[in-house]
């Protein structure tokens, strides 16, 4: 048992809890991966008019960090991380 403690492995109940928390966010938002992909493509299209962006490494996701609206349900917010390769498109 002590050997186990040395490695400080995460207990399986903690793993379950962490997995559920992430899983339930996407379940509750009820937003399909397909829709996320479509939003992503549209964002790329619009931004590309103004700057050169790294569409391959950009990430977007829906989080629930907004205002609380009861029972763990927070208003979802869209989080996007879009690396810019070049701000000046003409170059």
């Amino acid at each position: 048992m002590k050997v186990k403690n040395l490695f400080r492995r995460k207990k399986s109940n903690e793993i379950a809890k962490d997995r559920l928390k992430i899983l339930l966010i996407s379940d509750r938002v009820n937003c399909s991966q397909e829709m996320i992909e479509m939003i992503k493509m549209d964002i790329v299209k619009v931004l590309s008019k103004y700057m050169k962006i790294d569409s391959k490494s950009m990430e977007i996701q829906i989080n629930q960090t907004g205002n609380n609206k009861g029972r763990n349900m927070k208003n979802p917010s869209l989080y996007a991380n879009i690396p810019i390769i070049d701000l000046n498109k003409n170059l």
């Binding site: 399986s12 109940n13 809890k17 559920l20 928390k21 029972r71 763990n72």
Partner: peptide, 19 residues
């Protein structure tokens, strides 16, 4: 199982489901 950390406790479940 709860004692050895292999099952979520009642308070864990309540925290997740918030009921």
């Amino acid at each position: 199982m709860v004692k050895r950390g292999d099952m979520m406790s009642a308070s864990d479940v309540v925290e997740i489901l918030a009921l």
